[in-house]
């Protein structure tokens, strides 16, 4: 049970501090997150060039709460032994960690799709990357406006 005093303590922890305020406290935050994103991206694609297209990332443009944002990824592919999607990766730019989910699939999936729900700490861009069976990488990005940060704790309306 949260008493008022506990609530104030709670509100004072860094968790409850919105991204903008946190960025002021730590000027390197934005740069660090960007570097982490680049590193995660490199871990997936190496030095291969990522092309735009073939991937459709569907995210609501504006959401009620960053704790659970539904999205889907659909990749254009015949999904045959000769030509299929090997993997789908989803990354964020401003979450504490860039990785969201990585999926492995085969022609037996029939369609290259994924639907799930992500936590978004802030208004930001989400990127989906597909790796094809020929080794090429394709991607799509979408911007989401988060009105209420996922970091709010109980005790706040």
């Amino acid at each position: 049970m949260t008493t008022r005093r506990e609530f104030l303590v709670l509100a004072a922890t860094s968790l409850a501090v919105p991204e903008a305020a946190r960025a002021q406290l730590d000027p390197n935050l934005a740069a660090n997150r960007k570097a982490a994103f680049q590193e995660a991206l490199h871990g997936i694609v190496g030095d291969t060039q990522v092309r735009r297209g073939r991937v459709k990332l569907q995210l609501p443009p504006l959401i009620d709460n960053g704790n659970s944002v539904p999205f889907s990824v659909v990749v254009e592919s015949p999904m045959t032994e000769a030509d299929y999607v090997r993997a789908i990766h989803v990354l964020t730019e401003k979450n504490p960690l860039p990785d969201v989910v990585s999926v492995r699939l085969s022609p037996r999936a029939g369609r290259a799709t994924l639907s799930t729900r992500v936590r978004l700490a802030d208004t930001q861009t989400v990127t989906a990357i597909a790796q094809m069976s020929d080794g090429s990488f394709w991607s799509d990005s979408a911007e989401v406006v988060v009105t209420l940060s996922a970091c709010l704790e109980e005790g706040l309306i």
Binding site: T2, N65, L148, E154, G155, I157
Partner: peptide, 28 residues
Amino acid sequence: RLEWQGLGSLERRLRNCLIGIRAEPHAY
């Protein structure tokens, strides 16, 4: 409630509003 990331009762919801206006929430 997405904010709770779980299931909660009406009283839990009312506690959130009471705490929001800085009133002492009642016990469950």
